[in-house]
Amino acid sequence: MNPNSVSGAMQTQSPKPTSYVFQIENLSVYYGSNPAVKNVSLKVPARQITAFIGPSGCGKSTVLRCFNRTNDLIPGARVEGKLTYHGKDLYAADVDPVSVRRHIGMVFQKPNPFPKSIYDNVAYGPRVLGMKVDLDEVVETSLKRAALWDEVKDKLKESGQSLSGGQQQRLCIARALAVQPDVILMDEPCSALDPISTRRIEELMKELEQDYTIIIVTHNMQQASRVSDMTAFFSVELVGSNRVGELVEFDKTEVIFNNPSKEATRDYVEGRFG
């Protein structure tokens, strides 16, 4: 949305609209000495929705966590290969992971509102980042964008944890939007939600796509085919006794779902996996 406000080490002053937000080359992630995913290469286009699909344990979340460097927080995790964000190496020595996360928001599989009021949940990011904004306004617009405003506008003082699961997840999305990120990462955001809430979040993603780059991990094939523009299919391979994840195919969503070039992809999207 505003990569020109990028500060510190993440100086990407030129608002040159790179058509690719992220470019990954030969990315491998290790937990301890075991590789979890190997040799992933892909390009994430700007202002589009990219979906990651694949069987459990193939490393979708692992790759997703590389984009905002939350893998750094896991003891023993190590990243190899190249990952650029607007052309800048995300894992360069002079990059501050904290300021990376200011630009790349994340929504988790399990809703995780803070034990604070709804208002304070949304205002948390702007406050902690010291953003000079009108908080009331930010809270309202963020909640509106997350399609939650009408349900909570009369109880902003109530705890965010008193909401239903679906409302909590939308609150977490609003919380992520409040800091005006450039990219939003979503790790199975609908896995704990009912079909109606899921539908609302999908609609929301389509709307957000105008301004944000979104990467979503999902186990729901229909969801991937409904919302995403690009789809990456990951799979696991047995190397010795290790299960190592790999990127099998990455293409436009129509291609992945209708005319994939790999047999494994076709089997998976048609539900003939394993």
Binding site: V98, K110, V128, L129, R175
Partner: peptide, 15 residues
Amino acid sequence: LPRNLRDGALALGAT
């Protein structure tokens, strides 16, 4: 405390 509470704050760019 659930671990993802901390992850949520860190992911927003809090130190």
